[in-house]
Amino acid sequence: MTDFLEVKDLTMRFGGLIAVDSLSFKVAHGSIHGLIGPNGAGKTTTFNMISGFYKPTSGQVLLRGEDISGLQMHEVARRGVVRTFQHSTLFAELTVLENALVGTHMPFRPNIFAAIIGWDKEDRSGAEARAKEALEFFGLDHVMQERAGDLSHGHQRALGMAVAYASHPDVILLDEPFTGMNPEETRQMMDLMKRLKADGITILIVEHDMQAIMGLCDNITCMSFGKFLAEGGPQEIRNHPAVIEAYLGGARHVA
């Protein structure tokens, strides 16, 4: 496995607060990589920098060796890095199918002139097929015509991932995908992620559900107060004294 996505000395400063402090780690191609740490450790901020939502104060994000830090979010997405959001961020007023159709924006780029004349029938049916495929994959095909805002919390999380998956990403960044899911839903979702991995998609995941993290990840990076703390396989991280210390200090226990 080769280094595919690399974060190098990444730093984000909000006024006086250093949310992420020269963080470095590498994500291997085709792996599931966990990013963990107590609340406020800077995980979401790191995602925001990788995905282009924030411009890092300093440091680099390298994708296949290319520095993508400071690019806009859609430019990062077009290079194959697609993210989901920590809080169910969806097009609440649109239907589930329409949400997934927006996800197909990159593989089926709309063309306004073709659309007016009606020469985009193939693209439209292709986009719809892809959107339905993504919804089916995440078990949402039976709620296709419902308003996204009316879905249960678990389904909303799944839809967020389906929108990302619909775009044929190389890397998916998942920010706490299992919140609001019951254990059964979480288990199903973990299976789906293993299937994504088998398809060659690289996954970077932030999650507080330690059982899920330990069960899924090939490699885990732990951070605390913005700083790198430890890295290793699930077994190593579970028994790492600094990690246990950070979580006990942060009043959250490792399962």
């Binding site: 859609h74 997405a77 697609v82 961020t89 609440a92 159709l101 927006v102 924006h105």
Partner: peptide, 17 residues
């Protein structure tokens, strides 16, 4: 549809490319 997407949630639209 993309216009609607930009209206309702420009962050997610941008993350979709």
């Amino acid at each position: 549809l993309t216009f609607h997407a930009v209206h309702w949630q420009d962050k997610l639209a941008q993350a979709s490319g």
